[in-house]
């Protein structure tokens, strides 16, 4: 049997799954940002009438996933698997959204890399012949993440300049088979790297080596160069992480040019005072489901490399002084 595996860490799909539909739902602050118009739905406030921020996050995810299915125009019951993940303990946002959708459910945890991970695994399920429709979605919520990972939101304290702002939002894509539409042609799953960063206010620095490692292997596995892509977008490295990635890549013999950007630098503008940029599962998910998908469909982007970046720590491991392991997962989408 022919392996679909190429090189170290990459899979190349023989019948590439198509992104049938994508949908994004965000909070008010994201709606006011530079990408505001690219989102399908903008909430008026952060809680939208739910009882708690956790339930609000789950609602975001549910709306995004249902939105993608509706946009594709297929009945929900045609979906074979729902793949979802988020940042909260025991991925409750996803579990509760799955309770509403009642589809066969695979919960994923890759921290903020989960969107890319879900798209990779979903594509494997379809290309492998295990499913005809796979629904992928992730969510994050600023207030639920802050209180789990950092400090209460009402506490008067300063965020460090390298800190990033967790996106309130959820993005979803529906994968299937079709003759037209953006296709996922390859995926490179990353390995966990830890270069010893312990500062939870500097996630970008913790994740950058893992992203660079995934990029390096991706290019070698497929014998490609960064210039072969019209866009290389890392998940949520922010200002510090994006600079570090470029520098680490350069030292490893590969230079990222103007095609490289970071989703964390796209969502907010300077006046929104978020310091080093955006983060959270929702960050790369809503940028991809909104802005990037629109440009792929319009033909202004031909081949995109989305590299989700995840910080695989927990509040407990940080209190115990453990450094923050990072991961990067890459998927290739061609318009």
């Amino acid at each position: 049997m022919d392996l679909k595996r190429v090189g170290n860490q990459t899979v190349a799909f023989t019948s590439p799954p198509v992104i049938l539909a994508s949908y994004s739902v965000v909070g008010p602050m994201e709606g006011r940002g530079p990408l505001g118009k690219t989102f399908d739905k903008v909430w008026q406030d952060n809680i939208n009438g739910e009882k708690s921020w956790e339930l609000a996050e789950s609602k975001l995810l549910q709306e995004a996933m249902q939105g993608a299915v509706e946009q594709a125009g297929i009945p929900l019951s045609d979906v074979d698997y729902m793949l979802a993940g988020d940042l909260l303990n025991q991925i409750i946002s996803s579990n509760f959204a799955a309770r509403k959708l009642a589809l066969p459910f695979i919960g994923l945890y890759g921290a903020c890399s989960t969107m890319a991970l879900g798209m990779a695994v979903g594509s494997m399920l379809i290309d492998g012949g295990f499913a005809s429709h796979v629904l992928v979605g992730v969510s994050s919520h600023h207030d639920s993440a802050e209180r789990q990972y950092r400090l209460p939101t009402e506490q008067g304290s300063q965020r460090s300049l390298s800190a990033q702002w967790t996106v309130t939002g959820a993005g979803s894509v529906l994968l299937g088979q079709s003759v037209t539409g953006p296709r996922i042609t390859a995926a490179t799953l990353g390995r966990v790297l830890d270069y010893g960063e312990t500062d939870v206010g500097n996630m970008g620095a913790a994740m950058a080596p893992a992203v660079a490692d995934t990029l390096l292997n991706h290019f070698q596995d497929l014998q490609r160069q960064p210039g072969d892509y019209s866009l290389i977008a890392s998940g949520d490295l922010g200002m510090v992480g994006a600079d570090l990635t470029k520098e680490v890549m350069l030292r490893s013999g590969m230079s990222l040019g103007s095609e490289y950007t970071d989703c964390g630098l796209m969502i907010y503008d300077k006046s929104q005072d978020v310091h080093a940029g955006a983060s959270g599962c929702g960050c790369s998910a809503v940028v991809f489901a909104g802005n990037i998908m629109q440009r792929l469909k319009a033909g202004s982007l031909k081949r995109v490399l989305l590299v989700g970046s995840g910080a695989l720590h927990s509040p407990i491991s940080s209190l115990q002084g453990e450094s923050v392991p990072g991961i990067g997962h890459a998927v290739v989408i061609e318009g």
């Binding site: 400090l151 506490q155 304290s157 300063q158 460090s160 312990t198 500062d199 939870v200 002084g321």
Partner: peptide
């Protein structure tokens, strides 16, 4: 104390 120590030195 906050600015010159490690970031894990919280309020």
């Amino acid at each position: 104390l906050m600015d010159l120590t490690k970031p894990s030195f919280t309020p």
